Computed example of a mutant assay.
Amino acid sequence: MSHRLHAFEAIDNFRDYGDYATAAGRRIRPGRLLRSGHHARASDADLERLKGFGLGAVVDLRRPGERRDQPSRRHDGFDALVIEGGIDDGAEAPHITFLKTADLTPDSGRRFMTQTYRSLPFDAAHIDVFGRYFQALGQMGGDQDRPVLIHCAAGKDRTGFLAALTHHLLGVRHDDLIEDYLLTNTAVDLVGRAPAIARRLHEMTGRVASDDAVVAFLGVEAAYLDAAFAEVEARYGSLDAYLEQALGVDAALRARIEARLSA
């Protein structure tokens, strides 16, 4: 089990995505960049442990409807900046629609995930929250030099893309970036949990999914992230251009982020 993973009772996929070498010969500071699944089911012990991290900001990438259905639990004295999206189209989350209507096979799961990643970087709600996240990274320092935690529902897709984009900005090698992204599959132990998840899907939708289909849909594969990056490059020319033009990460902000997070 990776030293990056932090075990909680009811918060999935909690880990540190700092502490990687960068192309500039520096290293991302550990303990400043954290990621996880949602906190709606956090136990009291989980909340006490979260309190110990001294979070300065929490970036919730979920849709407003997701937040209403599963509101985050907070510990006493919680004072972190909360960054969340306000765009609510009232539509059902795409993954729920998929689970209710599509053939639940490994191939259909992979097709759905690949298409999801191709569109993910361009969703107006994502662009808004991603941009505010990078602004927060650049503004926090001095007495406010506290960790930032990003999460969505499972902490794997929206969170995974944003963590990978952060790694790119900071100059993390592509192989390390992919390794960190794929760590979700270890953190969540999908193979071991697939049968129970399949049963819950059947209870929720009345439809049967094989264990392999569950793993394909609820796990991550390098091809998914590659699809997102390729689409960004096709539309903007490069990830750096996307960061600047879509998310507002200009040279000055980039320098502040690098200064704060690199050692």
Results as ranks from 00 to 15, higher is better:
residue 65 G to D: 02
residue 186 T to N: 07
residue 167 H to P: 07
residue 222 A to Y: 05
residue 21 A to L: 14
residue 200 R to A: 15
residue 99 L to D: 07
residue 208 V to R: 09
residue 256 R to F: 02
residue 177 L to V: 02
residue 138 G to D: 04
residue 8 F to S: 00
residue 174 H to E: 15
residue 140 M to T: 09
residue 39 H to K: 06
residue 27 R to G: 04
residue 250 D to N: 08
residue 116 T to L: 13
residue 183 L to V: 11
residue 256 R to K: 15
residue 255 A to Y: 10
residue 31 G to K: 09
residue 5 L to G: 02
residue 221 E to M: 03
residue 56 G to L: 12
residue 216 A to K: 01
residue 124 A to Q: 03
residue 212 D to S: 15
residue 15 R to S: 01
residue 150 I to C: 03
residue 6 H to A: 13
residue 44 D to H: 14
residue 112 F to I: 10
residue 163 A to P: 01
residue 221 E to N: 05
residue 175 D to H: 11
residue 184 T to P: 02
residue 98 F to P: 06
residue 177 L to K: 01
residue 163 A to E: 00
residue 177 L to G: 00
residue 188 V to Y: 02
residue 211 D to S: 13
residue 23 A to E: 13
residue 83 I to H: 04
residue 239 L to M: 13
residue 196 A to C: 09
residue 98 F to M: 06
residue 25 G to L: 06
residue 163 A to R: 00
residue 171 G to N: 13
residue 226 D to Y: 03
residue 173 R to K: 12
residue 26 R to H: 09
residue 132 R to Q: 07
residue 72 S to K: 08
residue 104 L to R: 07
residue 162 L to T: 01
residue 22 T to L: 09
residue 8 F to D: 00
residue 34 L to R: 12
residue 76 D to S: 09
residue 86 G to T: 15
residue 85 G to M: 00
residue 232 V to T: 05
residue 245 Q to F: 03
residue 33 L to G: 05
residue 85 G to V: 02
residue 140 M to N: 06
residue 223 A to R: 12
residue 49 R to P: 04
residue 47 L to A: 04
residue 216 A to L: 01
residue 210 S to K: 08
residue 259 A to Q: 11
residue 95 H to C: 11
residue 256 R to N: 02
residue 183 L to Q: 07
residue 177 L to Q: 01
residue 116 T to S: 14
residue 142 G to E: 13
residue 32 R to H: 09
residue 251 A to W: 08
residue 41 R to A: 14
residue 74 R to S: 05
residue 187 A to G: 12
residue 53 F to G: 08
residue 229 F to S: 04
residue 181 Y to F: 08
residue 20 Y to H: 14
residue 235 R to W: 11
residue 172 V to Y: 07
residue 27 R to N: 10
residue 76 D to Y: 07
residue 222 A to N: 01
residue 25 G to H: 09
residue 127 I to H: 01
residue 150 I to L: 08
residue 151 H to A: 00
residue 133 Y to M: 05
residue 183 L to A: 11
residue 240 D to P: 10
residue 42 A to D: 04
residue 148 V to Q: 05
residue 2 S to F: 06
residue 102 A to Y: 08
